Simulated scan of single mutants.
Amino acid sequence: MVIKVFVATVAGSTAIKKKQQEVLGFLEANRIDFEQRDIACNDDNRKWMRDNVPGEKKPENGIPLPPQIFNEEQYCGDFESFFDAKEGNEIYVFFGLAPPKSAKSIEISAEETEKPAENQEVITNAEEEKQVEAEEEAATAEEEGGEADEEQVEEEEGEEEGEEES
């Protein structure tokens, strides 16, 4: 599927030129395949564009101004529709394309699948170390002939429970 952008390479209006540049620049920057079709120098392109822009999208004078955007034969919209879709983060819907899977999202997915096991081991090892330390402290306190301070033991147990919850 190729996006077709109908433009006028010989446009008298700077506003039209800017709109065309914005659409084409966006497509290039996002590496979306497109064809630029000139309506100023090619009567067939002009006729095809005018015939395929839906009636409700044509201005009052009946002549749609460039840029007009199509996905193959399917009409996507004009610059205003493009701009609204871009601002609403719905640009791939506008073009009728599936959003690309970015390399970043693929990396994150791979990391997420690996991380829980690694993190679980780290958490488990940390919990085990704390538990061993608490048991050693209790044993040391008993060997010294006294009992461990009840408040200190309760505090340590409370800390362990709080860490397990997080």
Rank of each mutant, 00 (worst) to 15 (best):
D38F: 10
N71A: 03
S81R: 07
T113L: 06
P66W: 04
M49H: 08
N61L: 07
M49K: 03
S102V: 04
N71R: 10
R37C: 06
V93K: 10
V93Y: 11
I108V: 03
A85V: 07
D43F: 13
D44E: 09
K58V: 15
E80L: 15
G55N: 14
G77L: 02
K47Q: 09
C76R: 02
P59K: 00
E56T: 14
E80I: 10
V53H: 03
E90T: 06
E73T: 02
E114F: 14
L65C: 05
P66S: 02
K101C: 02
S109R: 04
E87P: 02
S105A: 06
P64A: 12
K47V: 03
D43V: 12
N52F: 07
I106M: 07
E112K: 02
E72V: 00
A110M: 07
D44P: 07
V93S: 10
I108S: 04
W48I: 01
A40W: 15
A98T: 15
E114N: 12
F79H: 01
F83Q: 10
G62W: 00
F95R: 11
E112W: 07
L65K: 00
C41S: 08
G96I: 03
E73N: 09
Q68K: 00
F95M: 01
L97Q: 15
A110K: 09
F95E: 00
F94A: 05
R50M: 15
F83T: 11
E111Y: 14
A103D: 06
N45Y: 09
A110Y: 05
M49N: 12
P64L: 07
K58G: 11
N52K: 12
E80Q: 14
K101I: 13
K101A: 14
G62M: 12
K86L: 10
S105H: 09
E73A: 13
G96V: 02
G55L: 09
E72T: 00
Y92G: 03
S102Q: 04
E111N: 08
P66R: 00
Y75H: 05
S102K: 15
E114M: 10
I108P: 10
K47M: 09
R50E: 14
W48L: 11
G77H: 01
Q74L: 04
F82V: 14
E60N: 12
Y92H: 13
E73M: 10
K101Y: 08
F95Q: 00
P100A: 09
I108K: 08
I108F: 04
F83P: 00
D84V: 11
P67W: 11
P64H: 02
I39H: 12
C76G: 08
I91Q: 07
L65P: 14
E112Y: 08
P67Y: 05
E72Y: 05
A98L: 08
P67L: 03
W48H: 04
F82W: 00
L65N: 10
K86V: 11
G77A: 01
E90V: 06
N61A: 13
D78T: 08
F79G: 06
D51Q: 03
A85M: 06
L97G: 05
K47L: 03
D84P: 03
N89C: 04
G96K: 09
Y92A: 02
C41P: 06
K104R: 12
F94Q: 08
D43Y: 12
E114K: 11
P54M: 04
D44R: 14
N61D: 06
F95N: 02
G96D: 01
S81N: 05
G55V: 15
K57L: 01
